[in-house]
Design a protein around this nucleic acid. Structure first.
Length: 532
RNA sequence: GGCGGUGUAGCUCAGUUGGUUAGAGCACUCGGUUCAUACCCGAGUUGUCGGGGGUUCGAAUCCCUCCGCCGCUACCA
């Protein structure tokens, strides 16, 4: 097993300041889909997520709740772990930044940077609003230096901080980004980062004075490590930096950091430079995904349109939400989210296209072939059958290419194109007529193709819908297991063995009838009644 | 303000290095079919490809300009 190729993928760690919302679920799901896919491709995958727990806000929140910070963050970590388990997120690690192993990693990174002379003591000057208890950039303030929310005068405050010499490494980073076109994705995020670097990026402070919630600086115990410097290090904590050198060697550098587009600056400038300074390799890829919009609007507390991930999964099912995320949102762009569009997506893609194809195909195999996988006679293929078989043979490569590019919706399209062709093939060949006319070879071959399309589709959706795929396997009588399946082999056409038992069972995706659907159905029935 | 991006059917978007009647999915209308979850299949409607100007035999595709929208513009994650 040790000769397996390794793959280390991460989500960002979540701020332990408020409970999980649907955006957290989105990031974890897309990352999980990639992680599962890589496992299916034979990689030894390490998949980490976690919670970011050191900050003023967390302290305040704990105080508000009446518990000490550690108790508070532990309870928040549980909430995020529950989210992972509900959404079937196949993590191998969950890092809390308040853990001892993380403190070790942070201290070690700090020490290394400090020793290479990249951390120096200086003065941080910033505009501070007493009401917000926060610093603002001058550009954020009103013209007369007032806080944008409180409209009161902000104070120019100076405090002693330790700084990281970003400026020492910007040229090197610039070159790295230009030499590695896939380092920052998508392209638009890369452009932003390049612009920032070219316009000159200041050194950043990496400590705060006088806090007792945080990791003390190894070199100055009156200061703690600033949250961002602290949080980013979680990625190497996960794979054993400063605690398990063998594990670290195995998994670092990370293959992909999947993060929200709002935090690319930290991941694409500060984090790489921290690593350079500490003499560590850079992650191979940082992918900034888009945000979910609720009916076209940003989700926010003030708008009151935050979607609860637990609730929505209970209503529609985890696999359905996972499918919706992957199929309906172009990875890397903002995505629409609403109950209506979930229902639409479910009814068209899952119920009408895939679910109905499975149901009608297996039904015919039961009726016409005694519920046994029929034989494939390749010498009687007509043009239509040939076309779909050819397409089926190409699915594997198309699917791999798109998944490798993190193009999740495109990867699913590879199966849906086939599904659509299969539904069409049924019309064109009319197996019920072949049956009447006693064209047994044609009948069997058509039905065999249909079953193969279903089987291929089930593998394509496996990383996306890990609970649904096995239900399809049961219907078509294959005994795959996500842990052992060799998809490089099984994604080829023609693997289904003649004589295997199939069984229709209950429909997988019964149509969802919301008000609009019900109305539509009613109209159809009235029309039908008139005709008769 | 600066930088980047974007504006194509009702909606979401594809449109390779400029080249025949501008595409897909969804939605809508009509027709067909019956194996199926009233599903599926077929046909069809809608677009001055943001406005204007230019280059060219020819531009959604290149150039200029104007308008609209979005992102970034640095320490709350």
């Amino acid at each position: 097993m040790s000769d397996k190729k390794h793959y280390f993928i991460t989500t960002a760690i979540d701020y332990a300041n408020s409970k999980p919302h649907i955006g957290h679920a989105y990031e974890k799901v897309t990352t999980d889909i990639i992680a599962r896919y890589k496992r299916l491709k034979g990689f030894d995958v390490y998949f980490s997520t976690g919670t970011d727990e050191h900050s003023l806000n967390v302290m305040a929140k704990a105080k508000e709740t009446g518990v000490d910070p550690k108790t508070y963050v532990d309870s928040m970590a549980v909430a995020f772990k529950d989210l992972c388990s509900q959404y079937k997120i196949s993590i191998t690690d969950f890092v809390q930044t308040s853990e001892e192993r993380h403190a070790k990693a942070v201290s070690e990174i700090f020490r290394r940077s400090f020793e290479s002379g990249d951390i120096y003591k200086g003065t941080y000057e910033g505009w501070y609003c007493k009401s917000c208890e926060a610093f603002y950039a001058q550009g954020e303030l009103t013209e007369d230096n007032c806080c944008p929310t409180h409209k009161t005068q902000a104070d120019l405050i100076k405090e002693d901080n330790y700084f990281l010499k970003i400026t020492k490494y910007t040229d090197r980073l610039l070159k790295h980004i230009e030499d590695n076109p896939d380092f920052i994705q998508p392209e638009t995020r890369k452009n932003e980062i390049l612009a920032m670097l070219k316009s000159g990026f200041r050194d950043v402070s990496v400590s705060r004075p006088g806090l007792n919630w945080g990791i003390p600086l190894p070199v100055d115990h009156t200061q703690t490590v600033y949250v961002w410097f602290d949080a980013l290090i979680n990625y190497i904590t996960a794979v054993g930096f400063a605690t398990d050198e063998e594990k670290f060697k195995k998994y670092w550098p990370a293959d992909a950091h999947i993060i929200g587009k709002d935090i690319t600056k930290f991941h694409c400038i500060i984090w790489p430079i921290m690593l350079m300074s500490a003499g560590l390799a850079l992650p191979k890829k940082v992918f900034g995904h888009g945000h979910l919009l609720y009916k076209g609007e940003k989700m926010s507390k003030t708008r009151g349109n935050i979607v609860d991930p637990i609730n929505i999964a209970n209503v529609f099912g985890v696999d359905v939400i996972r499918y919706y995320f992957a199929a309906n949102i172009t990875n890397g762009t903002d995505g629409e989210f609403s109950e209506e569009s979930i229902i639409l997506c479910f009814n068209t893609d899952l119920a009408n296209d895939l679910g109905n194809l499975i149901n009608r195909s297996i039904n015919m195999v039961e009726k016409y072939c005694g519920a046994k996988v029929p034989e494939f006679f390749d010498h009687i293929l007509d043009e239509k059958m040939k076309t779909i078989v050819e397409k089926a043979k190409q699915v594997k490569q198309v699917y791999f290419d798109r998944m490798d590019a993190f193009n999740l919706s495109g990867a699913l399209d590879s199966a849906w194109e086939l599904i659509s062709m299969a539904n069409k093939l049924i019309e064109d060949e009319a197996p019920w007529n072949l049956q009447k006319n006693n064209k047994v070879h044609e009948l069997e071959t058509v039905l065999y193709i249909l079953l193969e399309v279903i089987r291929l589709a089930s593998i394509v959706i496996l990383p996306v819908m890990p609970d649904t795929a096995p239900q399809i396997w049961e219907k078509i009588g294959v005994n795959y297991d996500e842990k052992t399946i060799n998809i490089d082999e099984e994604l080829n056409f023609g693997k289904l063995i003649k004589g295997g038992a199939v069984s229709k069972g209950n429909p997988l995706f019964p149509r969802i009838l919301d008000e609009k659907e019900a109305e539509k159905l009613k109209l159809m029935k009235e029309k039908q009644a008139k005709k008769a």
